[in-house]
Design a protein around this nucleic acid. Structure first.
Lengths: 210, 210
DNA sequence: CATTGTGAACGCCTTCACAGCC
DNA sequence: GGCTGTGAAGGCGTTCACAATG
């Protein structure tokens, strides 16, 4: 999915006061190619003007709608080590659509700690929280050993989608959504391509993005 | 690329003393399906035994070799906020193949700080470092505004591959490799699928992993 | 008999190229 | 003339299904 990339590029363009973009310019700003941009956007509807391009602000609002960014998402973070803190901060400036509402950990030293006006609570309080599945996203930033347990607790608390940063392969029952991000896997993927440069696919080899 | 996932699953199996796996078992442990496992592994060579499966330790060593994990990779981290610290720690226990050798920042308060026996240095010292492109990976964990500048400095210092965590779209000249990871993009992707459950592709919908 | 390796079918995504529109 | 939207072509990865094998 490239919509988030377009969204970011459009936000930048809008902030710069640029009224209109061509598919080629947007492609450049988002790091993809023009044909993809046009095909993707045509899936959303006919929002462009031949000869001129797309109206930045209008397109931005359409993309934000499509991504569900015109509502506010509730974010719950479990595991407030360095990673948890980093995430708690990075959501703030992401533009209002995601708001951290609860932070959890097990370490007694951390319970009660204030992070940007939010107190860290003990995981045992999670079950009692009761979230709206279609509105709340859980973020797992705890050690791998307890990740599946945390995951289960999040589901039990009514979380509808989970982003897992722990180096463990988790399983959830539908309709809960799960997405995994792992630093070490990313490093290993990079290492693979350094060792096998020939495995880099397609014409974007000229701009070796993976 | 799924090799890193197999690698992790095999490592677990090896640690548990399990001598042999079938493609179905490995698929389960890695979170993919059996056909993919067999196709992927057959690309590496004929390492399985019909009727029995794969020798865990032998296959692990082959996968590690393919991923370039039988050499040691030098890792340089720029930007030692919470994220930088989290990354500096997570590489340690990843199993020896990645070793952080230098940490950089611009904040005078952080310069000189000791992180697991490594001192944080000022970015200006980066250029003088002189790395081996095919051995060194750079990690960008700084604010988006300075990410492209940091990226350029890493390339100038001889880094051959870069993992970018800053919410900015960077460009590098080949043959330098670039990989982007962005928390907010991941959250937005998750939000998209919550809003559009019908967009979830393929039969793995039964285990809604994205 | 359980399980691999793989050729063939399928489907999705990408890319091309151009007709239509401003 | 510049640029969009899209049908058609192409390429890549996934999945199926089965012959081969210890």
């Amino acid at each position: 999915m490239r919509l988030p990339l377009y969204q970011r590029a459009l936000r930048q363009l809008s902030a710069d006061g640029i009224p209109t973009v061509s598919s080629a310019e947007l492609a450049d700003a988002a790091g993809v190619n023009a044909a993809k941009v046009r095909k993707d956007l045509s899936h959303l509807g006919t929002y462009g003007t031949p000869g001129t391009g797309y109206d930045v602000n209008f397109l931005l609002s359409q993309v934000r709608h499509e991504l569900g960014l015109d509502r506010e998402w509730t974010v719950v973070i479990v595991g407030m080590g360095n990673l948890g803190h980093a995430l708690a901060h990075s959501e703030r400036f992401s533009g209002q659509s995601f708001r951290a509402v609860a932070l959890f950990d097990v370490d007694p030293d951390k319970i009660g700690e204030d992070v940007d006006g939010l107190q860290i609570r003990h995981v045992s309080e999670l079950s009692a929280a009761g979230f709206e599945p279609s509105r709340a996203i859980g973020v797992i930033a705890c050690p791998a050993e307890v990740a599946q347990d945390v995951c289960n607790r999040l589901v039990a608390a009514g979380i509808g989608a989970i982003l897992n940063f722990a180096p463990a392969i988790l399983t959830v029952a539908p309709p809960v959504l799960l997405r995994q991000v792992d630093f070490v896997v990313e490093l290993q993927a990079l290492a693979f391509y350094v060792v096998h440069p020939e495995a880099i696919t397609g014409p974007e080899a000229s701009q070796s993005e993976l």
